[in-house]
Nucleic acid binder design. Structure first.
Lengths: 132, 132
DNA sequence: GTATTTGCAAATGATTTGCAGTGCT
DNA sequence: AGCACTGCAAATCATTTGCAAATAC
């Protein structure tokens, strides 16, 4: 994935810190602020949480990344892609994307409510096969 | 709705503050901490945020209420009922329950992932008909 | 009567802001 | 030169904790 291009096309300036943030989000799939801080620190020893938060908020505003809020956990951040569902195992804390037809549900809701939907969240949580 | 009974059957002691918390959750449908604080203050002038948080956390632990986390907003709390979806208008901030067949989706996910699902969140957001 | 709850104040944790210095174009 | 970005320190906002007095059962 070309992160510099991704940043530019979302109307932001390319900085090494921003590239590192996106690289780590991409590697983890979903990453919370503390994990991100530890990872980015490996390349930028002096980076501050303030810089992370500023960049995350900017990237969210410019629709480059997305915050996923999860009850009882810290928010996770992911690079924005087509709407998809998430599934969480509350025992091992595995958190994954799920193959689930969201657009069908969205179409349905738009028809029945007359809302124009621009975002949707689907989070399933429970116990994965290994942990049962 | 009989709130005292509801509290007792969830193994908690009945206090006037707890009843008031549930009454307000029920009236609002979904309520955030600041709204709840203002409302409960009308009956209990000296109630503190600490008491609200303590009670909310206890009630969540005992499955009496549920926290709904929403990106860009403060969490809302609701009295627990059968799984249902939510819809948010990002213009007027209207937040409502949605008639949406969640159990069908849950069954499906359990089959395809072999997870045992015990909770799920469905939040649609966009612009309601009035605000379009 | 005992254990739990309440309300206050203080502590902790999370996020944001202001500002001086740096770097990019 | 000018503008945006970074990193630090401090400020703000959100939530939790400890404790003494009050209340539920």
């Amino acid at each position: 994935m070309n992160f510099e291009y991704l940043i530019k096309t979302h109307n932001l300036k390319v900085t090494a810190q921003r590239v590192s943030i996106l690289e780590n989000m991409n590697n983890y799939g979903h990453i919370n602020i503390d994990e991100l801080f530890l990872e980015v620190k490996k390349n930028f020893n002096n980076i501050s949480l303030a810089t992370l938060y500023k960049n995350i908020n900017l990237m969210i505003k410019n629709s480059l990344i997305k915050e996923v809020k999860i009850a009882s956990y810290k928010s996770k951040y992911e690079i924005k892609k087509d709407t998809h569902a998430h599934i969480l195992c509350t025992v091992c804390n595995e958190f994954e994307d799920l193959d689930f037809n969201c657009s069908l549900a969205v179409d349905n809701v738009e028809k029945t409510t007359a809302y124009k939907i621009d975002n949707s969240e689907f989070i399933f949580s429970g116990i994965c096969q290994k942990c049962q």
